[in-house]
Nucleic acid binder design. Sequence first.
RNA 1: GCCCCGGUGGUGUAGCGGUUAUCAUGUGGGCCUGUCGAGCCCACGACCCGAGUUCAAAUCUCGGCCGGGGCGCCA
Length: 429
Amino acid sequence: MLRSHFSKEVSENDYGKKIRIAGWIEDIRNLGGIAFIILRDRMGRAQITIIKRMNPELFKEIVSLPRESVISAYGLCQKNEKVMNGWELLLEDMEILSKASTPLPMGVIDKVNVDFDTRLDNRFIDLRREETKAIFMIRHSFIKHASDFLRKRGFIEVHTPKITASSSEGGTEVFKLDYFGKDAYLVQSPQLYKQILMATGFDRVYEIAWYFRAEEHDTSRHLNESTAIDIEMAFISNEEDVMKIAEEMTNYTIQKILDENSKELEILNVDIDLPSLPYPRIKYDEVVEILQREIDFKWGDDLGTDEENLLAKHLEYELYFITKFPLETKPFYAMPNGKYARAFDLEYKGMEIASGAQRIHDYEMLVNRMESLGMNVKNFEDYLKAFKYGMPPHGGFGYGIERFLMRFLNLKNIRECILFPRDRKRIRP
RNA sequence: GCCCCGGUGGUGUAGCGGUUAUCAUGUGGGCCUGUCGAGCCCACGACCCGAGUUCAAAUCUCGGCCGGGGCGCCA
């Protein structure tokens, strides 16, 4: 290997021994007779020290390398209290693995701001920065712990198709593509497939899913390609069973991130407490009441950005459910309950991060509902078939990964939470 | 789709009719044996594209392209 240790793996046991470290040259401080090279790897930084008169050729070679070049450095690991990590590597030999071109399209540690757009254009360099890296380490943790939680609760991980022939389940615009001469679409969510799976006996499934949405929205909280934790569970009494999973999963992952990612949270300046369970449930009717005290709002309207923000201002908690929506604000598959739907949104600081419901499991009821909404039932044959031969009561939710992270980390733009964002203007890199 | 704002060295900016186009960062070179936002000296490098107004345009007008903020739209 080109390294014997990562920067943070070196311990007192290694003092006085020869080690090999490898990574990117973040900075070179050449004082003439002595030079300090700051080398960065995935775990952190280390200092390489070289004295000119000990090896003039090697000295010249290393101090003339451009920043961000990749090297493997070999030498004595020497204890030194004054240096970062408490030790430094006295350079004896090095291998230049990749010389960086100059100038860099953006700095990694430069003392100037970089526009977000420039960062996205050069994402591979942006990801060398501590703050950016921290976001994705936390994203990694969130997905891992959400998966762990769901698996412990009996959920099976599934992967449903992202290309489909039937048009959308409604609402959002879809991306159309050519499938060997036939029309096909990128799925807007695994909704129809995970419901079909409820007829199989798996009972509980989850998917780290991709959502493709062709909406021309252009905001700091929308993406045209986003990811979600999608779950569906059968034999539920009502939507409350689903909400329990949503809130417990959220608290479980927050607790784990607090335990395991304190370094990243500190870098991102995030200081939060674990919310208490259960999260408050606010009925849509109560929301209307609160809103009507201040603005003109009609019962039956959907909640827009302003409404969500206004509501959040009136509440002293950050995570809460909005429940019992008017039936007409929710999609066809939501289970009716009088003029309401057995549907809920999970809101985090005034933004919807998850949305779910108990679904209709009765074939006749589902067909009637679709017809009353003017939908072409024929387009949903494959989906509806699963309801004819034994379908238990079920429900589930879609939980936006970027949305959660954006709120959890107080980020201003959802694009911060996905490696290579796809929005209306950006399809590269 | 609507409203508002902006495009100046690699990066981030100042300038808003006549400047040698500002500053920082960076890059290249020089000095320096304990730096850790190293320091000091020298150099390099830019007005998005097109048309127009004007004696004169980075600066004003129009169009285009690109971007930012907000809203709408959006399981």
